[in-house]
């Protein structure tokens, strides 16, 4: 039995309004630390998780956004953002905290078929 699986974590929700983004990030980092081949996808409102300049000091919620910068330390290289989702929100990759791969629906479809496990948050 293979001890390595390809795991994709798909983020749909914006940060702070719910804990989904934060707990999804925890799981992503754990999966990577466990030496699985991890892909992270941000689609729909999930692209807002990567927006630069997040400052949570006035709502007294921990700002976990800087943790996305640790993706590189965890060797998470497969970071995908749905191109249409960014465009529809008037955003570009320059607005994001980290370097990502911009992909369209077709490319994401193909990536999904390569996975063993896909979890949506």
């Amino acid at each position: 039995m293979s001890t390595k699986k390809r795991i994709m974590i798909v983020n749909h929700r914006p940060p702070h309004g719910t804990l989904h983004a934060w707990e999804s990030l925890d799981l992503t980092l754990t999966a990577a630390a466990f030496e699985q081949e991890v892909s992270v996808v941000f689609m729909g409102d999930g692209v807002f998780q990567l927006l630069a300049d997040q400052d949570t000091s006035q709502i007294n919620i921990k700002n976990f956004a800087p943790a996305y910068r640790t993706f590189r330390d965890y060797d998470i290289r497969h970071v995908y953002v749905e191109k249409e989702a960014l465009a529809r929100r008037g955003l570009s990759s320059d607005d994001l905290l980290i370097d990502v791969n911009l992909v369209d629906t077709g490319a994401l479809c193909r990536l999904m078929t390569e996975q063993d496990i896909i979890l949506h948050f």
Binding site: H12, M43, G44, T105, L108, C109
Partner: peptide
């Protein structure tokens, strides 16, 4: 979600 899912259904 359903609409999104159908975009990724092959």
């Amino acid at each position: 979600k359903l609409e999104t899912c159908l975009r990724f259904t092959q």
